[in-house]
Amino acid sequence: MKKYKLCLTVNGIDYMLEVNAGETLQDVIRDHLNLTGTKTGCDSGACGACTVLMDGMAIKSCLVLALQAEGRKILTIEGLAQDGALHPLQEAFVENWAIQCGYCTPGMILTSKALLDENPNPSGDDIRMYLSGNFCRCTGYQKIIDAVSSVRPLQGGRHGKK
């Protein structure tokens, strides 16, 4: 199998890897880099569990070939807390019981981050709409919406844009 060189930045660290053409960004993150906080749910772009930020945009890492991410900056859930301090969204998810099984949580938090970066004061309906590419089968969404709502106006400027 032909291998291709791939350079990308994940959570602030530059990587140079060798991948097959058919490997996805999700494969790179989970299998090459062992960052298993990015979850795999359906492998077809339906569930949103594998959402990461690519150059600040929420994307589904199972729908992107690794080679498409050449030169991109990726943020996964592992890169969100800074110096041991949780990101305000992570805090809010914990405090509001917005987490049950936790499997959708990394994708939900990162999608929410993309939303707040675009729109620091989203309404409940804005949040519902923006998060409607991410399934949560446990919480019924209410506590997730509560958690995201509680992070307004965006606190912790130090987390800023990655």
């Binding site: 989970r30 299998d31 062992n34 960052l35 298993t36 906080g37 990015t38 979850k39 795999t40 996964t76 859930i77 592992e78 969100l80 807390a81 949780l86 992570q90 805090e91 998810f93 914990v94 405090e95 019981w97 987490i99 936790g102 499997y103 949580t105 990394p106 938090i109």
Partner: peptide, 23 residues
């Protein structure tokens, strides 16, 4: 009382280990 989940932080930080994560 409303008490926060004992497993909340590890799930919010992505270090909780699920079936597909075993290697």
């Amino acid at each position: 009382r409303p008490f926060a989940r004992v497993d909340g932080r590890r799930k919010a930080c992505g270090d909780a280990v699920y079936g597909p994560d075993i290697k």
